[in-house]
């Protein structure tokens, strides 16, 4: 019960942090696509590192639950990435941009996850 409450609260904090980051990127670059991209990469890297640490019994699975299913789930969002990709495809000929954005964010996130996971395992 308490773990679920912690997951919910940390998830809301993660969402608020992403919102603040989006506004900062919007002020600096004029759009939020790069902010969402960066958030997904950071979330996957941290998730990979934590999964490896749990595998090595360095941290408790409870921390993994709170950080990965809580904070990082709020911080990175599948819905936002796929909607950015769908909205990029709206203008004429925008499908190339959309496809490039979605493929790169998905594949790089996968790479970052494995870099975090195997990086910690190898360094250990």
């Amino acid at each position: 019960m308490w773990v679920s409450i912690l997951v919910i609260v940390t998830s809301a904090f993660g969402t608020a942090l992403r919102f603040c980051q989006d506004r900062l990127f919007c002020r600096l670059k004029g759009n939020t696509a790069m902010s969402i991209f960066a958030a997904s990469l950071i979330a996957c890297l941290v998730c990979g590192i934590l999964n490896a640490l749990v595998t090595l019994v360095e941290v408790s699975p409870l921390l993994l639950e709170i950080v990965c299913a809580g904070f990082l789930c709020g911080y990175s969002s599948f819905a936002v990435i796929s909607t950015v990709a769908a909205l990029l495809a709206r203008p004429k000929g925008g499908w190339k941009k959309s496809l490039f954005y979605s493929f790169s964010s998905f594949l790089l996130s996968l790479c970052f996850y494995f870099i975090g996971f195997f990086g910690v395992l190898i360094l250990h």
Partner: peptide
Amino acid sequence: YVFLAEGAVGSFTAFDLVFSQIS
């Protein structure tokens, strides 16, 4: 929009857990 989309739906979906499952 901020409450429903950015807040509720943004927090509802999970991106990193998909990759945990992939591993």
